[in-house]
Simulated scan of single mutants.
Amino acid sequence: MLYIDKMKTDYQPFISALLAYAVQRDVHPEKLCRLAGIAFDKLKAGNLKSIQQTQMDHLWLNVINLTGDPLFGLHFGESLQLSALGVVGEIIKSSTNVGEALTIASTLVPLITPMIGISITHNNDAFIVHFDCLDKQQEKQAIYKQTLDLLMVFVIHELDGLILEKIRPMKIKYKNNISDINVKEYTRIMRNQPQRSKLENSITFPALYWNEPILSSNYELQKILVKQHQELLIQSSSKNTFQAKIFNYLLANSYLGLVSIEQIAANFNVSARTLQRRLKLEGVSFQQVADEARKTLSIQYLSAGEYSVKQVSHMLGYNEISAFTRTFKRWTGMAPSGFRKQDG
């Protein structure tokens, strides 16, 4: 476990992921870094020597302010993948099932925040992930709440990536007040309505998932997606259309199939109708953008030669290989199996 100690104070991968997501939310990363006192050029080059907690605090406050999204932590958690933290290989080498991977991942929380720790308890029916406040003075602060939301959502959605299944928590306990206007959004993203608790923040999952084997090949796909996602940081100045932002979001969040227009609209803090209208002004429909993202990903995965047509079909959200085959033929004039052999 030496790699964990070595990486405890390295916030750079996390900040890079946050900035890449901020780009999707119409916030320029260089401006955000400048306001937080972070050297953007050094961060981009990967040689930023140290980042202070006060800089992290300013980064959070400014990104919330510039996006105008009071639920930024919730939405960022929905979009973040564990591979963005640069620890995929170690987790895969050290884990055979969900329980082991989750236990190791819980030790990596210092890569995100020193305010919150994660612990796990078990019983015969469930395992419970607890989010423990390590700094009681910060518990009432806005940054603490945003970070808590991020971590709770991150855990739920990352379990999906471990086993390629959309998991619904049995119970969510939450110490913060949620306004009536935000209950629906919390319930959508957390997949269960949080219950107010005076004692703890926790998520309860069915015990059957604990020993479920993890799919290491899925993390390899995530690594590809995260690389693409972070490259957007550099390309953002020349691709600043709303269409490009939706396309990039689809690429970065497609490892469990493309998300719905309602999910994307909520993540961009607009209605589905507004999202469609903004795309129409640029001469495209949401379906066209989603179709192009699937085409791009399918060609990339098949060209890699490491994944079967069935895997690629599943990863892109198709329930039947036949449906994927028909669509791929429409895109390229070839069956995916033939394309894979030709490209290989």
Rank of each mutant, 00 (worst) to 15 (best):
F286C: 02
T274Q: 14
A207R: 06
W210T: 00
A272W: 02
P213R: 03
L199T: 04
L225K: 06
Q195M: 08
Q195C: 07
A244F: 12
R273P: 02
W210F: 03
N201L: 03
L258Q: 07
P206C: 01
Q228K: 15
R273F: 14
S271D: 02
Q287I: 13
E212Q: 10
L225C: 09
Q287G: 09
A244G: 05
L256Q: 13
A252C: 04
A266M: 03
Q263G: 02
S237Q: 14
E282F: 12
H229F: 15
A252N: 03
L208R: 08
Y249M: 14
S238G: 05
L250C: 04
A207M: 03
S285E: 10
L256N: 11
A266P: 00
P213L: 04
N267Y: 03
R273G: 10
E200N: 05
I214D: 02
L281I: 10
K227D: 10
L233K: 03
S217W: 15
V284F: 11
Q263R: 13
L251M: 14
Q222V: 07
K227L: 13
I264N: 00
V284L: 11
Q287S: 15
L251P: 01
T274H: 15
N269R: 03
W210H: 00
P206L: 01
A272R: 09
K239S: 15
N240M: 12
V259N: 06
I261W: 06
Q235R: 14
S202F: 03
Q276F: 09
R277T: 11
S285C: 09
Q287C: 08
L258I: 10
P194N: 01
S285D: 11
E220Q: 15
V259R: 10
I246V: 15
Q263F: 06
G257F: 06
L225H: 09
T241Q: 10
N240Q: 13
S238V: 11
L232R: 13
T274K: 13
L221N: 05
Q193I: 08
N218T: 12
K227V: 09
Y209R: 01
K198R: 14
I264Y: 00
Q276C: 13
L215S: 08
L215N: 07
T204N: 00
P213C: 03
I246K: 01
Q193L: 06
S238F: 07
Q228M: 15
K239L: 15
S260Y: 05
S238I: 06
Q195E: 12
L279V: 04
Q193D: 02
A265K: 01
I234H: 14
A207F: 04
Q287V: 14
Q235E: 15
F205C: 00
E231I: 08
E231L: 12
G257V: 04
Q228D: 15
N267F: 03
Y255G: 01
S236E: 11
S202H: 03
